[in-house]
Design a protein around this nucleic acid. Structure first.
Lengths: 248, 248
DNA sequence: GACGTACTGTGTATGGCGTTCATAGTTTTA
DNA sequence: TAAAACTATGAACGCCATACACAGTACGTC
């Protein structure tokens, strides 16, 4: 509001405000091409497969050329985390509860398709065009509920956090450390716990393990678990809305 | 239950099952000393300050000696993430709702004191003695509520996710990228958003920004926001318990 | 009491990484 | 046509995780 503090160059570029050069050779790249290449690499080989050299060779330039577009590798990762998000679902005509449910699930699905997102600080307040679009849509969906802006943003970030958590549990299956230990599902996880837990110091947990909480699941988690936690949250939101006297 | 599949050596060590050597020189270290040193480094200089060489010199050995205790740097990070958790609060005598609230807040506080925890995949199902102790205690606190084991674990992981999310928002303040851009609080964040958002494509969000959602806060978030989201969740849990016919 | 054995810590070396910097090359403006 | 502004390059630097062969040390055995 006060000073026009200059934003970091990468963020400007994420918003399509490329500093149009008036002289010199035309840039062979733009940020979108670079992030797209980096995302392909990450999808294929995980975040470890993303190196400046690798990305550069994929877009056909030398490694150091990328530094004309991003200030550092971290900048690139930030841009990737934003660009990987598709357009958010359209809230038009949906009751808030339905929209929040599909919105949250869609966010989770992004991570399931691109699990490396979890490793690039998925928590920092977003400044990219895509993630802010997601935020905007959920605010819209909460119109007419009587919640104020702050409450709506809180709801949004709580749901985002839930999507992250849930996706991460599913992704736990893919964690290299567990794979190496032969733990590729909740079943093996439970067996490993049983081997290690002392019932005296872990009474409730070892009882649950012996009771078979982790048994019988195909992978780590089924869809019911996701819906379970989600409805917990939405029930909470609904109560709040009722208190505010909004429509349900 | 079936096969005694061998667990990874680090995990054995985390549980104090050091493979007692019967010959050769006595080990000068144990895993606890190493993780403690690494945690001090991370607390001081962030996760980037943790290098094998740095940790090694802090405990007085050569860098490569650490590989007698951890299989890789990732192993070390895993051990750190477990060891950094203090003992969980005691649930004895507390109503479940009170305990869950303090439990969740305590988890958040761990991250606020050691924000680097966020960067070492904080989501993977825990296998360390400390984090499993936390899980055990919350299961205990939910005794008598009528929830089954699976539901209790779901509640626990949802709350953990919430603690992570909330802490991460606060920690957003410390993010180097934002610091560099001069964004050190919600106020500046809002100003930056205002500079970048087009009201046509971001109607609800830019209205909220103009309305001052991000104004007036000292830092990023105040405690009210934490309690707000938390009670959302606990309300949800309470409804579920009521449906199950447990005591409230 | 001496030898072999098993184990711990060291030193050296390697390959990969992100990043810096001076330079060459290219397009536009004057 | 010359200068200016900008882009991509190539070589080099420092840091890092890690592999491997070696030296030193304590226990178990004869």
């Amino acid at each position: 509001m006060d000073q026009e503090r200059p934003l970091p160059p990468v963020i400007e570029r994420m918003w399509g405000r490329e500093p149009a050069p008036r002289r010199g050779p035309r840039p062979r790249l733009d940020l979108a091409m670079i992030t797209a290449a980096a995302i392909e690499l990450a999808d294929a080989d995980g975040i470890g497969g993303v190196s400046m050299a690798g990305v550069a060779s994929r877009v056909g330039v030398a490694a150091t050329a990328l530094y004309r577009y991003v200030g550092s590798k971290e900048d690139l990762l930030t841009a990737m985390a934003d660009a990987v998000a598709p357009l958010p679902p359209d809230p038009a005509g949906l009751p808030w509860r339905d929209y929040l449910a599909t919105w949250t699930r869609a966010q989770r699905d992004i991570i399931l398709e691109h699990p490396w997102v979890l490793t690039i600080s998925p928590f920092v307040p977003p400044m990219g065009p895509r993630r802010l679009l997601w935020l905007d849509r959920v605010l819209t969906a909460l119109d007419g509920t009587g919640l104020d802006d702050g409450e709506r943003i809180n709801v949004a970030s709580t749901l985002t956090g839930y999507a992250l958590t849930d996706a991460a549990v599913v992704y736990g299956a893919g964690d290299p450390a567990y794979e190496k230990a032969g733990i590729s599902g909740a079943d093996e996880f439970g067996a490993a716990l049983a081997e290690v837990l002392d019932p005296a110091t872990y009474p409730a947990l070892s009882a649950a393990v012996r009771g078979g909480v982790f048994s019988g699941a195909e992978g780590w988690v089924n869809d019911d678990d996701f819906l379970f936690g989600l409805s917990l949250l939405l029930d909470g939101v609904e109560q709040l809305i009722a208190r505010r006297g909004g429509v349900s």
